[in-house]
């Protein structure tokens, strides 16, 4: 009896031990396709490779962002139309924020996606399983006009940099086609021309309108309300004329607080409002990516599965028809 008790106790003590870590199952790497092909630029996507979650090697970032020897075939309405060529982009990152214009590391020289057509790409890379993705470019919804009005914001504390306190509210007016579900994304950028140079910058804006369902804030969930882009469905504007208000601060364009003295160089700023009619899959991608960011490392929420339409790999191939309108500022 004593022996049995000792043996049983010993067995219990052995079973009390448990490994404190879990090894990640390595099922091999996959191709990642990322891209929003738009009706106003050449077909371009970013092809990269996934990494094991705990891969923290120096090369990981480069591995994540680039494959230079892939074969990328493009089909339009199931007919082969082109293959994309690799372009070296340097060791730069993917697109910073919801972008101004897109440039992938695989591009077509002259093929511009046409609304209403279905595009499919097949990506083959040595040592990796093939990946495919398809998207139909939505029909274009045009910006009809942009109405503006200025507001002077009282400054509680004087700004030591003496920039302007003028806000500009811009109503982007467009009409949502009825009888179909549409998804949109809107962002603003400006082109600064001075001393013969031309630079593009994202222009942050504010929007308190109830229409946007997804807001992409400059500093993520825990930042302030400065937005880089918004995305929304036509849930509450279906078939209606929509006046979409966004507010920009002219100090972000570099406007000075006091009038510029005579004889100073003139600065010219073109501000572009871009309305993307995006595919449903891309909208879901933005939605889930936004939630992924909000819930990142939050123990009270379940992990977010980011939407993908890539078979055999990861990422998203989105499609958009883009309408653009602009305002010109000089000082």
């Amino acid at each position: 009896m004593k022996k049995s008790l000792i043996i049983i106790s010993f067995l219990f003590l052995i079973t009390a031990c448990v490994k404190d870590t879990l090894n990640i199952t390595d099922s091999g790497r996959r191709i990642t396709i990322n891209g929003l092909i738009t009706s106003d630029s050449c077909f371009s996507v970013k092809i990269s490779k996934s990494a094991l979650l705990n891969d923290i090697s120096e090369s990981t970032n480069n591995t994540l962002y680039s494959i230079d020897n892939a074969k990328v075939l493009v089909y339009m309405n199931d007919n082969y139309v082109d293959s994309l060529s690799y372009i070296f982009l340097g060791s730069g990152s993917p697109f910073e924020g919801p972008y101004i214009s897109r440039m992938g590391n695989y591009s077509s020289g002259n093929m511009i996606p046409i609304p209403g057509n279905k595009y499919k790409i097949v990506v083959k890379a040595p040592g990796l399983p093939d990946a495919t993705a398809a998207v139909t470019i939505p029909n274009l919804v045009k910006i009809e006009r942009v109405d503006t009005f200025r507001t002077i914001v009282p400054l509680q504390y004087p700004d030591p940099y003496i920039t302007t306190n003028v806000q500009l509210t811009c109503n982007v007016i467009f009409t949502d086609p009825g009888n179909e579900i549409n998804y949109y994304m809107l962002n603003i950028y400006y082109v600064h021309e001075a001393w013969g140079y031309r630079h593009c910058f994202i222009l942050n804006f504010f929007c308190n309108d109830p229409i946007p369902e997804e807001k992409f804030a400059r500093w993520g969930t825990f930042g302030n309300d400065e937005l880089q882009a918004v995305a929304f469905s036509d849930k509450i504007i279906s078939g209606k004329k929509c006046s979409f208000p966004v507010t920009i601060e002219l100090r972000d364009l570099g406007f000075p607080f006091y009038p510029v003295p005579d004889g100073t160089d003139t600065h010219k700023k073109n501000v572009y409002f871009r309305l993307y009619s995006i595919s449903e899959e891309y909208y879901k991608y933005l939605q889930t990516l936004n939630k992924y960011e909000k819930n990142y490392n939050n123990p009270l929420s379940d992990p977010v599965l980011v939407n993908s339409n890539v078979n055999g790999g990861y990422g998203i191939l989105g499609g958009a028809a883009v309408s653009s309108d602009s305002l010109v500022f000089t000082y």
Partner: peptide
């Protein structure tokens, strides 16, 4: 639910530089 891989996002949002891939719930 555990992730097994990470991959690049199409766009950066705040500090998110890669997406963890969860094969399924």
């Amino acid at each position: 639910t555990l992730a097994n891989e990470k991959y690049a996002p199409d766009i950066y949002i705040a500090y998110i530089r890669y997406i963890q891939n969860y094969p399924s719930i």
